[in-house]
Computed example of a mutant assay.
Amino acid sequence: MKAFRALLIAAALGSSPALAASYTVKAGDTLSKIAVQYRMEPAQLMRLNGLNSTTIQVGQRLNVGGAAATAAAAPARAAAPVAAAPRGNAFVRSAASRFLGIRYALGGTGGRGVDCSGYTMLVFRQMGINLPRTAASQWRSGYAVSSRNLQPGDLVFFNTTGRVASHVGIYIGDGLMANANSYQGRTVIEPLFGNPYWATRYVGARRVLS
């Protein structure tokens, strides 16, 4: 709101507002959320601030390279949920696609292969979120969402071995999910409810992206 008022005042005075040089981390912020706001990649934001991990603290000041925040630089209608949704979808798909085609390896978290929860860990790390190691522990992360309200970035869970949450994937929109598929032997994008195997084993979804 303050940035928006500054924009209006600057417009009334006939001058351009100064571009933001830093950002103070607020409660609920993640590195990926801030990166999207300033039209940057999380890795770029990490390099600018010399960060070795995606962990950030409330009150921490981040160098945003003089970039203008999307909400301040764009017209008010561009910040509406309808306009923002495609950008969020593309951002999640981009993060998920970086690790497609990796060989499936039970217990793997990178290097020579990944399993289902190892894959979700890698993807979410790119978005500034550290997930627990196993599908069962990721099932306890975030909060539950209905299958009717799935959004790109939601974790989707399946019962494949008799346990409540023994497999996990990432919903990327348009009825699709990205996951490390042991049957196909690699990380892939495939239908969620359009695939009878997954549809009959689906147990729920959790939202960890704000």
Rank of each mutant, 00 (worst) to 15 (best):
M1P: 00
A3C: 07
L7C: 01
A10R: 00
A11H: 10
A11Y: 01
G14N: 06
G14S: 03
P17C: 08
A18C: 02
L19H: 11
A21S: 14
S22C: 00
K26C: 04
A35S: 15
V36M: 14
Q37D: 14
Y38L: 05
R39F: 01
M40R: 11
M40I: 08
E41H: 09
A43Y: 01
A43H: 01
R47M: 09
L48V: 07
Q57H: 13
V64N: 03
G66K: 02
A67N: 15
T70S: 12
A71I: 13
P75Q: 12
A76Y: 13
P81G: 10
A83E: 14
A84H: 01
A84T: 13
P86V: 06
R87P: 00
V92R: 04
A95N: 06
F99I: 02
G101E: 04
G101C: 10
Y104M: 03
G108A: 11
G110Q: 06
R112K: 13
D115I: 04
D115W: 08
G118R: 06
Y119S: 13
V123N: 12
V123K: 10
F124I: 08
Q126M: 05
I129R: 08
A144Q: 13
V145R: 10
S146M: 12
R148D: 14
L150R: 12
G153D: 08
G153H: 08
H167D: 10
G169T: 10
I172M: 10
M177W: 08
M177R: 11
A178R: 04
N179L: 03
A180K: 06
A180V: 03
N181T: 08
N181D: 15
Q184A: 14
E190C: 02
P191E: 09
N195M: 04
N195P: 02
W198C: 05
W198D: 07
L209N: 08
S210E: 10
